[in-house]
Design a protein around this nucleic acid. Structure first.
Lengths: 126, 126
DNA sequence: CTTGACCTTGACGTTGACGTCAACGATTAC
DNA sequence: GTAATCGTTGACGTCAACGTCAAGGTCAAG
């Protein structure tokens, strides 16, 4: 299949696919006319990348997962490098959550200080 | 005082000060030679901006706070516009926290799926 | 033959808060 | 006078993951 079809089936833009290729994440063989030609397994790779990006991974993070899939593994996350990325991401996310919680507390405190009557109301309606 | 001194006292770069001015957040009167001249109250404004930036506010968010201080209020957050920003930021932060928590759960789930033996271990050592 | 849908490779634009030159003028110290 | 230190205004670089042209080649249908 060509780039347009892959893009449609993967739900992304052709620009994104070319970008992934430029970043060395996916490779396409070329037809005689220069068009990129993809197989079904490429759809798999792209799906993996998209899945990772949506949970906050970078393309760089996605590399080992793609490599893992291309190495024949059933799951992109079943290789040690991928697991390492998983772990690192978990700690990164935990750090971000801690930072945000601290910020939230700080902002809430500033609000109550600046406007004692304007209590944050901690989501009463939930 | 001139820009270098203000920068030192505020703990930021002169570039940042010029940037704030360019964005219309602070204004400086000019000496005869074209140099910017600041007063003590400007240190106050810059401190407020820095304080807000470090808790995740944008310069745009900081505008009403600066205006509030310049209007003579003791606190930059005691004006209704500032309070509105406080409230909006709180909900934004809450949204981000929710997103991160969801991501964390998703990543942890993917990890356990891809590598059943590699449990996330939920910070045992804490 | 020509339209239209597809493909190709550049290459610049986006976002925020500056960093980092460049090229120059002003001030102070000696 | 001259060197060091300060100031000035541009203006491009940074980071990520593409969006959005631009200018053109390819191919099937009519």
């Amino acid at each position: 299949m060509r780039i347009g079809e892959l893009a449609r089936r993967a739900g992304i833009s052709t620009r994104a696919l070319r970008y992934y290729e430029q970043q060395g994440l996916i490779t396409a063989r070329r037809a005689a006319n220069g068009y990129r030609e993809y197989g079904e397994e490429d759809l798999r790779l792209v799906a993996e990348i998209r899945s990772l990006l949506t949970v906050g991974f970078t393309l760089e993070d996605a590399r080992p997962f793609v490599a893992c899939l291309r190495a024949g593994h059933a799951s992109g996350g079943s290789c040690p490098e991928s697991v390492a990325v998983y772990r690192r991401k978990l700690t990164e996310i935990d750090d971000e959550i801690r930072t945000l919680l601290a910020r939230r507390a700080e902002v809430a405190a500033q609000l109550t200080t600046a406007c004692p009557g304007c209590l944050p109301r901690e989501q009463e309606d939930e």
